[in-house]
Design a binder for these strands. Structure first.
Lengths: 200, 200
DNA sequence: CCCACGATGTAGATAATGTCTACATTAACG
DNA sequence: CGTTAATGTAGACATTATCTACATCGTGGG
């Protein structure tokens, strides 16, 4: 058996990971620092060494989530090449896939109580993601998509669909739909409504 | 001064109203039953007469929110007459206006921790709202909007934009945009991207 | 008219939590 | 190899959710 270290090794990371699980499975109200400590086999005060309070833990969790979402979204764009319209479409799909594959983090990212107490690092992560989406939106507009629309409204629109749809699916409002259509097809057809791909 | 009644009068309603304020102002973690009791000048045990536990209060709050959102959305449709496409557009705008005018309730409605513990009444309110949106979506499709799209995906799409956009605006991600464009114009132009109104 | 009874509010107890503080152990590094 | 900062422990305290026994109210049947 693994010997008991006085020091955990990477308690900070373990706390964040376990917190994501709990929030996803039982909600933020069921998340307790003492419970986390118990689950990880450390004393109830240990988490305080890494997070001054519960809010700080939640903020760290959201930051992690934003960074992952950003990476997944941009990676999806890189895969499809240069066409700005194809890229924007791919970003929406990439975001949705990430959201549905990482529901715990996705929920953290959207949690109103987490955003409320954002620190500098989280704000930076949010800003970075927003900038990427906005740039892609502007590039697609330059390539001929909705040339007359207000740039800011277009960016809001582009955000809203993957963001809103992933939540609606996650919250089971559209659970039946996801059962019948394959998820891949659902996401593709949905994004086709927002950013139609050029006919080849 | 008002005399102190032993009985509050309508404590249940007062609790829900105050809870909405707290959640909106300080988050769900700051909401305590004892705090509510203090604010309303009753003993710490009084809320238990109306809600067996905190979850039950939150569920009641979300039910109220869904009913209001439903009413506001359908009232907006009624105002614009019979054309299904005009109605669908109006519903999106009506929903967004309600959401931004009632942020406390809107947040309750979207709160992942509230949906988790939905009871029969809340599920019914959610279902009713979904049915209304879906019917409107189908009617618009019959009137020629996206005739070839899958009906379920279309409904998801129609939901996602007002739902996602209202949250993005509320969470301050797009706060700057709302300052510069008037809210009315923002909502109209956004919905015009989703459900273009017929040229007159 | 009144009064018994259900609805509503009160007060105390208990277990659990967040967070603080003083102390213990360890790892890293000159 | 020893010092020091990082990390973990244990106990204290105020606050909370929730239960239970009791108090007060108002209302409808007699």
């Amino acid at each position: 058996m693994t010997k008991k270290h006085y020091h955990h090794g990477d308690l900070r990371r373990a706390l964040i990971a376990r917190a994501a699980q709990i929030i996803n499975a039982e909600g933020i109200e069921a998340l307790t620092l003492r419970g986390l400590a118990r689950d990880l086999g450390v004393s109830h005060g240990a988490p305080n060494r890494h997070f001054k309070n519960k809010q700080e833990l939640l903020t760290a969790l959201a930051t992690e989530a934003y960074q992952q979402a950003n990476e997944a979204t941009m990676a999806a764009a890189e895969k499809v090449g240069e066409d700005p319209i194809v890229r924007l479409n791919a970003m929406g799909r990439g975001y949705m896939h990430w959201a549905l594959d990482n529901r715990a983090l996705f929920n953290a990212l959207n949690h109103p109580d987490i955003k409320r107490s954002a620190d500098t690092e989280l704000l930076e992560a949010m800003r970075s993601f927003q900038l990427n989406v906005r740039s892609a939106s502007i590039a697609a507009q330059a390539a001929g998509r909705y040339p007359d629309a207000d740039e800011k409204i277009l960016a809001l629109y582009n955000n809203s669909v993957p963001f809103g749809a992933a939540q609606l699916i996650d919250h089971d409002v559209f659970a039946a739909e996801v059962d019948h259509l394959s998820r891949e097809r659902l996401i593709s057809e949905l994004m086709e409504l927002v950013v139609p791909l050029p006919k080849v």
